[in-house]
Design a protein around this nucleic acid. Structure first.
Lengths: 236, 236
DNA sequence: ACAAAAGTGTTCAGAGTACACCCATGT
DNA sequence: ACATGGGTGTACTCTGAACACTTTTGT
C-alpha cells in the first residue's frame, strides 16, 4: 500500500532548531499546591510571567540543563525532577523556531525557602488556584504538569518529595490534600499510610503546632523503592 | 543564596540541533506483545535494526512528524499515539548532535496487516521477548515504551486500541495477557470488564475460532471518555 | 479548667480472588 | 458421540469508606 518507509536521515540537509528547557516547580504550602513563577527580565515579553527556562548548551542533555536551572535557582542538586513533555509546534515561540522540553519538579518549601530569596529574583510562589496568565504555551505546560503530578501521586510515593525529611502525619496528609485538592479522612489516612510500611516512626515529637506534640516519622527508602516498581494506591 | 536566575534566552547566540522523531509501534499477535522493527537502508548503520524515524521538517510539530511516519508506514492516520520521551544526551548519535522525540503507538495487527507489506519494506514484527539489538538508544526507547504502555494499560482503557472494532472477550483477554505478560482468569476477567460498562454486546457471533461461536462486542466511546479522566483499574 | 491539636476502632459495603463444571455446535 | 472452545456462579477475604470521641499538655 505504501511506498517508501526509508528513514529520512540526512545529517546535512535538515533544519536545525533552537532547543530549550522550561521548569515547572511545585511546592505545597498553606494546604495548597504552589507553583514557582518568574517575571521575565529580558525581551521578548519582558515584564510578563513565565516559567524559568534556559537554552540547552552544546554538550549537555536536557536533564542536565533542567538540573542546572534548578541548581541556579535553589542551590540544591538533589531535586525530584521528571521530564514532562517536549513542546514543538512550529509557532509556539514568536521569537523563532524553538523546541522546549518541559520538566516538572517537586521541592520542599518549608525546608528550602531560605535558600533563595524569591522576591529579589522576581520569583513568586502562587497557588495554582490563582495562577496568573503565563507567556507562550507555559500555561499549557503547567496544566499538563498538574495532571501528571496527580497521576503520579495516585500510584507512586511522590508525596514524600514535598515534605521535610522528618515530618508529621498531618503534614503528609496536608500534602496529599493539596495535590488532590480535596479533604481526606484523618483516620483512614493514618491507617492506610502506616500499613504501607513507607513510614519509620521516630521517637521524637514536633511540638511547634500543638501543646500535645505530634510524632515525627521518616520515610523508608527500601519500601519506597519496592513501591516505585509495583505501584501502590495512594488514593485517600 | 543564588545569584542570577534570569532565563537565558538569547535567540541569536545559541546552538541549534538536528531534531528527529522515532516511532515505537506495538501490536499483539499470538498472545504476545509485538514490536515493529526495521532494517536501516542508509548509512550510518545500514543493515542494522532500528525503529523507524524521520527528521522534523521546518513547519511541522513532532506529533505531525510522528503521524507522518506512521501514515507512510501503515496508510492509516487515526493511530493511537503518545509522546514517550525526548532523548537528548549529547553523544546519543555518533552522526551528530541529534535530539530525538520518541512516540509510541498501538495498532491492530489483524485489522491492518494487509495494509503494508512488511517484508517488502524490510520491516518485521518481533515478539518483545525476542527483540533483536537495536541501534543507538533505540533499545532504551523500547524498554521505556513497554514500561509506559503497561502503566497506561493498568489504569486507562488502551487495551481496546489493540483489538479490531468488533471483538470477542477472548481476543480482549489475550491482549491484556500479552501486555502484562501473565495468565488472566477467564471468569473474573469477564465479570469485571462487563461490569465496567465499556463493552456493548452485539447480536453477532464470531464463528471462526469455534463451532459454538463467541459473541462479539464493540466498545463504548462514552464510557471510555469518562474512564480516561477518572482512570479505572484494569489489573486482572 | 479549658483550648487546641493528636490520636484511636468499628461497622458496612463493594471488589478482588480462587476455583470447576455445563453448553452449543460442526463434524 | 465427541471434541472444541464458550460461557457461567459461589464463597471467602480484603480493602475502602463512613463516622465521633478521648488524650495530652501548656497556659
Amino acid at each position: 500500500m505504501t511506498t517508501g518507509t526509508t528513514p529520512k536521515k540526512d545529517y546535512n540537509s535538515n533544519d536545525r532548531f533552537l532547543f530549550a528547557v522550561d521548569c515547572i516547580v511545585f511546592g505545597v504550602s498553606g494546604n495548597k499546591l504552589q507553583l514557582l513563577v518568574f517575571e521575565r527580565e529580558v525581551e521578548p515579553l519582558a515584564g510578563e510571567w513565565s516559567l524559568l527556562g534556559s537554552f540547552i548548551e552544546k554538550n549537555e542533555s536536557t536533564a542536565d540543563a533542567a538540573s542546572r536551572v534548578l541548581l541556579e535557582l535553589t542551590g540544591l542538586d538533589n531535586i525530584y525532577m521528571e521530564q514532562l513533555h517536549c513542546f514543538a509546534t512550529p509557532d509556539r515561540d514568536p521569537g523563532g523556531r524553538v523546541v522546549s522540553v518541559a520538566y516538572w519538579s517537586l521541592i520542599k518549601i518549608n525546608q528550602n525557602d531560605r535558600e533563595f530569596n524569591v522576591d529579589n529574583h522576581k520569583a513568586r510562589w502562587v497557588s495554582i488556584d490563582e495562577m496568573p496568565g503565563l507567556i507562550l504555551d507555559h500555561g499549557e505546560m503547567v496544566n499538563m504538569a498538574i495532571k501528571r503530578l496527580r497521576e503520579r501521586a495516585r500510584f507512586y510515593p511522590v508525596g514524600f518529595e514535598l515534605v521535610p525529611r522528618e515530618f508529621t502525619l498531618r503534614q503528609l496528609l496536608s500534602v496529599y490534600e493539596a495535590i488532590f485538592d480535596h479533604k481526606i479522612d484523618d483516620r483512614n489516612f493514618r491507617k492506610k499510610i502506616l500499613k504501607s510500611g513507607l513510614l519509620t516512626p521516630l521517637d521524637k515529637k514536633d511540638k511547634t503546632t500543638s501543646r500535645k506534640g505530634s510524632f515525627l516519622y521518616e520515610f523508608n527508602k527500601g519500601t519506597y523503592r519496592q513501591l516505585q516498581d509495583k505501584g501502590y494506591n495512594f488514593e485517600f
